[in-house]
Amino acid sequence: MKLHSRHLLGLDGMPKEDIQLILDTAISFKEVLERPIKKVPPLQGKTIANMFFESSTRTRLSFELAERRLSADVVSFTTVGSSVTKGETLKDTARNIEAMKIDMVVIRHSAPGAAHFLSRVVDANVLNAGDGSHEHPTQALLDMFTLRDRHGTLEGLKVCIVGDVTHSRVARSNIFGLKTMGAHVSVCGPATLIPREIEKLGVDVYHNLEDVIPNVDVLNVLRIQLERQERGLFPSLREYHRFFGVTQEKMARATRPITIMHPGPINRDVEISADLADSEHSVILQQVTNGVAVRMAVLYLLGTTN
């Protein structure tokens, strides 16, 4: 039992049994996280570098916690205060880190493909913590773990990803992973935020949230990236909220209990109403808890194979 790859770069093309193995392994780590001492020794003596070339709070903290709870030694840096600002290339930064005998690298970068590139130039195991608008595999894995935990299986589950799909790596990784696991995936958002030809990935496309709600088990609500609002992709936040914000009012059309997910950070009363984010439908905080367990599973599986 081991993963087919030495790296976790994305869920595109990852075999079903690998996803299954990660999700199953994460169950054991979830149990570890409920113990009084939340630390286990399998990565003792391994050194992991967290290279975050783009801002992140949740993901970086989650990875760091996961690493420390597996007893690895951890070094982290963010672009602020590192020599990246001095113009060093990604390759040189990576080489230098490797010269310090690092075993695993977790990388977040604004350029799609950064993790793939890194995996070709260093010997360490590379984990993609988000590369531009390409993939964010651990987020999708923790989403799938949370859904499987709540619904028992992913097979046949109807999941709709709502919001800015074009700029979302979370959406892409979720689509790849969920499709592999046999779920039905759809996307919903204004036409300006849904990439053309996304149907080719095997998803249904909707532009009206009220058509979607009666037919789904899960809404995965994406963050509206406020910084992109200036580009005029939708008229105003208020209008976005009126048409695509998930609210109690729209949820009244549901025919079954719907699970609401959000990768964070939430813009309350933009993509989701504040009361709904805190309601029993929401698994947003479970996602965060599960994120540590899922990342521990991936680190463990990659870090203990030769």
């Binding site: 039992m1 199953d24 054991s28 149990e31 286990v40 463990y300 203990t304 030769n306």
Partner: peptide
């Protein structure tokens, strides 16, 4: 008790032992 995470031969093994849960 599952002791996989505490094994001293985790890294030398070709085949990764399956992780089970401690209950």
């Amino acid at each position: 008790l599952d002791i996989t995470l505490y094994r001293d031969d985790l890294h030398g093994k070709l085949e990764q032992p399956q992780l089970k849960s401690t209950e």
